[in-house]
């Protein structure tokens, strides 16, 4: 086995170094630029101390967007998980048209988010789109999908759920298909009903897959911004702005590279800390439940 040791770095290093080289410069650049006043009319790496960070502390839009993200991303991912799990259970076995459903349920995650958001915008268009039209046809009042805070949030979540529930569905279905039959037979011999079997057998067995799926989705959902940009452009007011979108406004639309650098850095640290804590908690809770 000693022969193997010699090669161990040759497995890891190519990938690790590639990533490191591609990532380290941007990271250092962002740290440095966050201490500069780089903006559109002064595109230089000067040094202005911590002025950007002081400004950030008083930036209500930034902090409000972070709080909003916690609710928005957390809520969306949870709903995706529940729906994805339910769907996976339903087409797991004993279902007609199994393969058709499975393909159909996978398709949304394959589509380009910016492109689909443009389609969704036409769907939620309040006077020309089909949603309000259909509501009107069945005698319901029309809804201000993109111009009042509550419905706009619902519209955003709908788009995210449509796009990413398939991701949960895929991981959970693959997980279900890999379960061995014995625990289920044992439960059947004990005379457990479907509900009891689910909570005592299926759910605990699915814990590891669930943790992975939830964490990956949380990471991706924290970057939510395409759908916001296209659907509401953060409105009404700034009530649907996410950090991803706010960073985009400051950094690219207004070209305040320095200030956006300090925002991004703070955001990155916050996210890494939050996601680490969340994943530890998830692992612990689900593991204890598994016993």
């Amino acid at each position: 086995m000693d022969g193997m040791r010699r090669y161990k770095s040759m497995f890891l290093l190519p990938g690790l170094l590639t990533l490191f080289i591609i990532i380290i410069f941007p990271l250092l650049f962002t740290i440095r630029v966050s201490f500069s006043g780089w903006n559109v009319s002064n595109p230089h790496m000067d040094f202005i101390g911590g002025a950007n960070f002081v400004r950030m502390l008083a930036d209500h839009r930034f902090w409000a967007s972070i709080l909003r993200l916690i609710l928005l991303a957390g809520g969306t991912v949870l709903i995706e998980y529940v729906l994805g799990f339910a769907l996976a259970l339903m087409v797991w076995r004993n279902v007609r048209g199994q393969r058709v459903w499975r393909v159909l349920f996978l398709v949304p995650m394959m589509t380009t988010p910016v492109v689909m958001a443009a389609i969704w915008q036409t769907i939620f268009n309040e006077s020309l789109g089909p949603v309000n039209d259909l509501l009107g046809r069945v005698g319901l009042p029309t809804v201000q999908w993109l111009t009042s805070t509550g419905p706009a949030t619902v519209a955003l979540m709908t788009v995210e759920i449509w796009q990413w529930t398939p991701f949960m569905f895929l991981l959970l279905l693959a997980g279900l298909l890999s379960l061995s039959k014995e625990p289920f037979m044992a439960a059947a011999i004990d005379g457990a009903g479907p509900v009891r079997t689910f909570f005592k057998v299926t759910f605990p067995l699915m814990a590891p897959v669930s943790v992975t799926a939830l964490i990956i989705r949380l990471i991706e959902a924290s970057k939510m911004s395409d759908s916001v940009y296209v659907l509401t452009s953060g409105g009404p007011g700034s009530s649907t702005e996410t950090p991803g979108y706010y960073l985009y406004i400051r950094g690219l639309k207004e070209q305040q590279t320095g200030y956006a650098g300090s925002l991004s850095l703070t955001y990155l640290v916050l996210m890494i800390v939050t996601l680490t804590i969340v994943s530890r908690l998830l692992v612990r809770t689900l593991k204890t439940r598994t016993g």
Binding site: L19, I216, G244, L247, G261, S264, L268, M271, I272, L275
Partner: peptide, 8 residues
């Protein structure tokens, strides 16, 4: 690396 906001 996936946590990095693209703008960074």
């Amino acid at each position: 690396q996936r946590i990095m906001p693209p703008i960074v």
